[in-house]
């Protein structure tokens, strides 16, 4: 019951993050939205694995946590190396 509620809240937050990712306005909002989306996916999968009773899913949640971090670092480095030439909009 509580688990189902948590899943619904997580889905709601994912929708909000996606709205912000579509709206922007600048590229960092989108990166932040993608990052938020990623951590919520980690939680969603962890919660779903308890809700459906298959703890194998936790490995995937762990991979997501890793991947999410690496993507954010990637975006940071690339924007930083490019921003001498271009503005922050996109």
């Amino acid at each position: 019951m509580i688990l189902a509620l948590t899943v619904i809240v997580l889905l709601l937050v994912m929708v909000v993050a996606l709205l912000r990712a579509f709206a922007g306005p600048n590229v960092f909002d989108r990166v932040l939205a993608a990052n938020l989306f990623g951590t919520k996916t980690v939680l969603l999968i962890a919660t779903i694995s308890y809700l459906f009773g298959s703890p194998d899913f936790l490995d995937i949640a762990l991979v997501y946590a890793l991947i999410n971090y690496i993507s954010v670092i990637g975006v940071l480095r690339i924007t930083e190396l490019r921003n001498e030439q271009q503005g922050a909009d996109g």
């Binding site: 996606l18 990712a21 922007g24 590229v27 989108r30 990166v31 939205a33 993608a34 989306f37 990623g38 996916t41 969603l44 999968i45 779903i48 899913f57 995937i60 997501y64 993507s71 975006v75 690339i78 924007t79 909009d89 996109g90």
Partner: peptide, 22 residues
């Protein structure tokens, strides 16, 4: 428009696909 934004959305798309597979 804007390739960096598209890339971020690609990443979100991958996450969604994977959640769906889960």
């Amino acid at each position: 428009r804007g390739l960096l934004a598209s890339t971020m959305l690609t990443s979100v798309y991958g996450l969604l696909c994977a959640s769906f597979f889960v």
